[in-house]
Computed example of a mutant assay.
Amino acid sequence: MDDTPKFGENDRMPATRIETRRGWIGTRRLDVIEAVQRALLIGLKLPEDDRCIRLLEYEHDAMIVPKGRGPSYTVIEITLFSGRSLDAKRRLYAALAGELSAFDVPARDIKTILVEVPPENWGLRGLPASEINLGYKIDV
């Protein structure tokens, strides 16, 4: 019998932060969050209920963007366990571009940053995640 603590439904990873300038999203905040969630499911093959996404909108003078980028320039930073394959990362990048295109965000206006953390450096319920049965594969 496996006595490894099981991953609970209230624990979430990866942790995703969407940062952009205020104005272009309007009342579609939840729609944008759900689009990023769908891309995470496709790219990283996460369970449907694995959710931890934050959306931050900045005033125009609080975010400098690269020259030639539009008003919808978006940075998506995903902190996740290390171990995903390059193919999984490619799927994720393509899925993010596809999902955000529905909001007229061109692929050139999307910057995705993956911050990979070893499971022993991620604490859940007072334990290192390396000691918890996550219930899904990381090395996809």
Rank of each mutant, 00 (worst) to 15 (best):
D2H: 10
D3E: 10
T4V: 12
T4K: 15
K6V: 13
G8V: 03
D11S: 10
D11C: 04
R12T: 08
P14C: 08
R17V: 13
R17G: 04
E19M: 09
T20Q: 04
T20K: 04
G23N: 04
G23V: 00
I33E: 01
I33D: 02
A35H: 05
R38P: 03
L41I: 14
L41E: 13
I42N: 11
L44F: 13
K45P: 00
K45F: 00
L46G: 09
E48H: 05
E48C: 00
D49F: 01
D50Y: 11
R51N: 06
R51A: 07
R54A: 02
L55A: 03
L56I: 05
E59Q: 03
E59G: 01
H60V: 03
D61T: 05
I64Q: 11
I64G: 04
V65K: 03
K67I: 10
K67A: 12
K67G: 01
G68I: 01
R69I: 04
S72K: 11
Y73V: 00
V75F: 00
E77V: 11
E77A: 14
I78P: 09
L86S: 15
D87S: 09
A88W: 01
K89G: 05
R90P: 02
R91W: 05
L92V: 04
Y93V: 08
A95M: 08
L100C: 11
V105L: 08
R108K: 13
R108Q: 10
I110A: 01
T112M: 13
I113L: 15
I113Q: 13
L114V: 07
P118G: 09
P119G: 06
N121K: 14
W122T: 11
G123I: 11
G123V: 07
P128S: 15
A129C: 08
I132D: 03
N133W: 04
Y136C: 05
Y136A: 06
I138C: 06
